[in-house]
Every structure is written in C-alpha cells, then in structure tokens.
Design a binder for these strands. Sequence first.
DNA 1: TTGCGTTGTCAAAGCGCTTTGAAATTTCCT
DNA 2: AGGAAATTTCAAAGCGCTTTGACAACGCAA
Lengths: 341, 341
Amino acid sequence: MNLKQLSELLGLSQTTVSRALNGYPEVNEATRERVLQAVKETGYRPNKAAQRLATGKAGSIGLVMPTAPGHQSDVHFGEFLTGLGEEAVRHDFHFVIMPADPDDEVAALRRLAISGNVDALFVAYMRGHDPRLAMLKSLSMPFVVHGRSFGTEPDYPYLDIDNEAAFYDAARLLLQLGHTRFALMNGPAHLDFAIRRRNGLIAALGERGLELAEDCTSHTVMTDEEGLVAMERFLQLAERPTAILCSSTVLALGAIRAVNQAGLKLGEDISLIAHDDVLPLLKPENFSVPLTTTRSSLRAAGVRIAQRLIGTVKQAGPFPEQELWKTELIVRASTGPVPQS
Amino acid sequence: MNLKQLSELLGLSQTTVSRALNGYPEVNEATRERVLQAVKETGYRPNKAAQRLATGKAGSIGLVMPTAPGHQSDVHFGEFLTGLGEEAVRHDFHFVIMPADPDDEVAALRRLAISGNVDALFVAYMRGHDPRLAMLKSLSMPFVVHGRSFGTEPDYPYLDIDNEAAFYDAARLLLQLGHTRFALMNGPAHLDFAIRRRNGLIAALGERGLELAEDCTSHTVMTDEEGLVAMERFLQLAERPTAILCSSTVLALGAIRAVNQAGLKLGEDISLIAHDDVLPLLKPENFSVPLTTTRSSLRAAGVRIAQRLIGTVKQAGPFPEQELWKTELIVRASTGPVPQS
DNA sequence: TTGCGTTGTCAAAGCGCTTTGAAATTTCCT
DNA sequence: AGGAAATTTCAAAGCGCTTTGACAACGCAA
C-alpha cells in the first residue's frame, strides 16, 4: 500500500493525502478525517526511504559502534545507547548504527554521514586532538560530541562531565584524610577523559607539593582483569600507595579482588575512589565494601544529547552548544584515613 | 556530488557509471577504471536512501530496542549487539535500531518493517506464545529469532540454545552431589528461556521423585538487586534449599551477596549453578568463589544470526532454518556435595 | 451580475539512484 | 567486403514521497 494507491482509494490526489497526513493547514478538516480513517483501515505507512529522498530528513541519528573480532564489548556503550533511545522513542526517531573497526572510525563516520541515511551524528570515545572534529565541521551535518577533545579549540557542540574537577575533588578528599601515596588506574591514555582525570589528580597533588609517580599510573582498557593486574602491580611496590583513583567501577571490581587476595582491607589499608557511570550492573553501594565514587549518569547524558540532536534536526532549538556537567562526590566506606604504619 | 554530476564530469551516462560502480560485466574495463578513479578523487558516495528506493535493498538489519524511562538497560542487549556488529561490519551492513516501549513491541516491529528502512529483522526477548511471530510471517521480510516461542509451532527461523538441557544437566549434577532441596532464580516468567529452563529443572527433579516448591522459585528481571532479594527469601525458608539454579550471572551476583551476608559459604553450605552468557563484565571465574556455570556466548550467537540474516538478504543461502546450540556445563568451585546437618 | 479573496484540490516536477530496452559501436566470420 | 554477433553505451522510466504553482469552487461585497 503506497500513497498512490491510497489516494486512488479515496478519490483524492496524492498531494491532498500527503498534506492531510503531514498536518498542513490547507486541507479540509472533513477530508483530513477521511484520510486518517483510511490510513487506520489500510495500515498504510509512508516509505521512509522515499520520504528521506524527498525531504532530506529521515528522523534518524547516526552513530558508529567500535567493534572487531577481538574487541571487548563495552558496557558503557550500551548504557549510553539506552539513554539516547529513551529520548528518541518520544520523537519517533531511530538510530542507524554503523559498526566499524576502531582504527577506521574517521572513515566510518564520514561514510555514515554521506550515505544520506541520517540527519545528525553522535560521536563518542573522544581522544586528545581528535581527527574526527575537523571532518565533522566540514560536513555541515548537526552533531554532538560526548566528551571533549583535549588540545582542540572547544568550539564544537559537546556535552561533557568535568572530569578534571571530579578527580581533583576526589584527590582533595583523600589528601585531607592524610594520604600522600597515590595511584591512578585510568582508561586508555589517548582518551580525553583519561587525560583530564589525570590532570585533575596531578593538580590536587601539586598543591601539596606531591607528584604522581610513573609506576603508580596505569592506562588500560577498562575491564576488571586489567584492574586486577594493575592493582597487583601497585601492591608490590616498595612504597605501596594507600590511595587509589580509579576511572571506572569496572576497573575497581578487579582492583578490589586484588586487594582482597592480598589480605588487605579496603577502606582501611587501601582507600579507593572510583568514577561511577551509574551502570545498572555495577552499583557502588552494592560492593562488599561500598565504594566512594565520583558520579555522573551516562544514561542521563544520553538522554540529554538525544534531546539536543533531535531538537536541532527539528529546528526546535536553540540549544546550548557546550555543556559541562559537574560530577557528584559520594562518600561511602571505601575511603578512610591513611593507615598508621 | 551525485551520480548525475559524476557522469557529466566523466562524459558518460548515469547508466554506465552506475554499472561500473556496481560491478556489472557489460562495461569496458578501461571505463570502469576511469570511473573508479573519479570516485576516489571526488569522494562520491551513492545516496543510500535513493539506492534503497530504487533497489528495495538498503544493506541494513532492523531491531527493536526495548526502552522506557524506568526501564533498566540490559547488558545482554549490548553484548548481543556487539556480536551482530562484528559480522555486519564485514559486509558493510548497518543497523536500524528502533527504540520502543516494551509494551509496544509488536507495533514497533511492524513499523520498522513497513518503513522500508530495513532488509531483514532480528527479534529477541521471545515469550511463550509470542504474538510477534504471526506478524513476522505475514510480513514477507527475512527475519531470525533469537530464542524460541514456547507453545508455538517451531516453523520459523531461529537460533536458540538448549535451555532445557542446560538446566536439566545442571540439576543432574547437583542431584549426583546429593542435593534434594532445590531453588530456582529465573528470569521473567513469560520469557521463553525461563519457561524452558524451569522445565529442564523440573524434569531432572521428577526423575528422582522430587518437586520444585513454589516458594523456591522466583521469576524476576535479572538484576543483582532482585538476586539478592530472592536469595534472602530462600534463606529464610524453614527447609532451606541447598542447591540453587540461577538464570544469569547477574542474578548470581546478588544471590552471592545474600549468601555472604548470611554468613554462609558458597560451594559448601549452598551450591549454585548460574547460566553464563559470557558477559565480558561478569566472568564466573573471577567471582570470589568461581562459579559453576552453563555457558553459551551471547556474542557468538549474535555473530551467527547476523551471518544468517545478511546471507539471506544477499541470497548467499541456504542457511539452516533452525539451530539449537548446546550449552557447556563448566564445573568450578560454587558447587559441592550437600552439607551434612 | 461581475469581480475578488479564500479555501480546497490537483497535476507535475523532482529527490538520486537502478534497470530496461534500444541504439551505437566494435569484432568476428565467411 | 558484408552482415551477424558481441560489446559498450545511452535515454528514459520508475521507485514513493513532498512540494510548487496553478486551478476550481465558493462566498461575499459591490
């Protein structure tokens, strides 16, 4: 069933039916009723591809999903997608997801944009000096970035959390508790959030004349295995750190296993603060020793970015171009005063 | 840059250029070279919507993502998607994801199909007597179901794991260890896998003249909180169960917390077997007491389903219509002989 | 009655691609 | 050399929709 058939059925022209459907004013109310009724009866749905071709709009936002045979799937991605979806469903928008090798992200993004399948782009996993930004700007397609790109002029639309402040504040808390030996379990070194969190920690330490030792820093993908390995390394150091900052509750999971296996007590021998993306699977309050965290909901960020993206496509703007969300520092039992020894 | 412009640039007709691009034989090799060269230089990409409109194929597979403001995001969904993506990227396919309220899945699926945006559909979260099957069959669009629908003639294309055998085997193991008091922590009662796993357990118990008590069964969404609550309830029973079957490692996470809080020892006081979807986040071997599991990789299932779906669209078939994968029973430390008491 | 502004409807063009059927060109065989 | 066959290219139609610009039909004032 297509427009033509429907209009023939009704004895109207395609134009009129199309207008009736799309809420144009220049059509008789009675006619509109009749059309709507027919749509209900026939179950007619406009062909999206044709609509897209005719209008240039498709009601969809595009994103690239990094994936590869060996590539670990990332819970953060799923959680974020849920947030996007929550908003998208309200506007009858959908997603076009292009899976791509992580090395191929720039090209994949370009393909997605040029394909003419999407109205707007969402970009995540930002890196320092991210090459995608220049490409995106040249594209004249709306986009919003989750995160920022360290070292690039921040003149693009983004939503980010204040990673630097988060870890600065977290470090300050631990400093006030008397800790002086810090370690950082971070995400991959080239990612923007990792850079900023590290800077936040270094800034706080610097104020007390302290430094972050090289061997007390780990940059890895954020899995619990890597957390375990990193923590085991820290624990074998001559000058064992007593305060750990951790970029993810996933990493913390492994780290805590290492602490337990070493027979140490979290919150007493070792204090740990992790960043909490509010993953439904990993609630800091449910850890055997509830975790002190810097918190910001990934899902909420997804909702907000979808709002901005969809709003822009629908010209419902204007939206703020840059948003920087504060994180919450939530103190639980995994932090305590520095142990006497 | 579109086909017309490109063809004018080359002094060829659109037809020839199109044919050159799509690998048709009736075009001179030299001409093809020239076209390919021009494409490289201009960065021309065919408009997908137009292609879709003209051919009826779009190189995309559609799926519905259940989502709602209160709705917990589901790790399993993300993991599965990764699997699909891993295969899709090899064929330059993408996904069209339609977020939809869980109550609206049938309608959402129909919208997605009729929209003309997708070549094939993937369907998950199957229920007993699932109403989507009849709709799908009437649609004349390829689809593959992950799971099955209990109570419906299995004449549709699916890939499922043998849930019944999995829990039957798991129960047998525990029976051999002397356990007689069983409990089941299952997923939502209307879901197909939950029905079959329960049946598997009941069958194994039946062979020994045992029954599964009503108050030793819980059907909940699979979060660690629900696992905790369910296990707490089991532990307060007069005739406390000693053998637990658990439909997810996520549930197990909560269950184990309850066991620990009650001062009991997993693998001694309580034996537990969980089904393991091989979530990267939740490795059974990394639990403080490594978990005995029935295992089947969700991601691998995703890859396989994508193969079948894409193969069908590309007419690369034939593919088996029905596949039933065996699960592995992997014994670790969370199971032990029934405690003497 | 004529003339004018509204209102409701329509035919036709166009979005960018594929594909059909025919035409132009080249190649081959006798 | 002449004609058939094979190769290469093309013009035009069509996919299903939106939108422009024109055209009836109507009511109403003059």
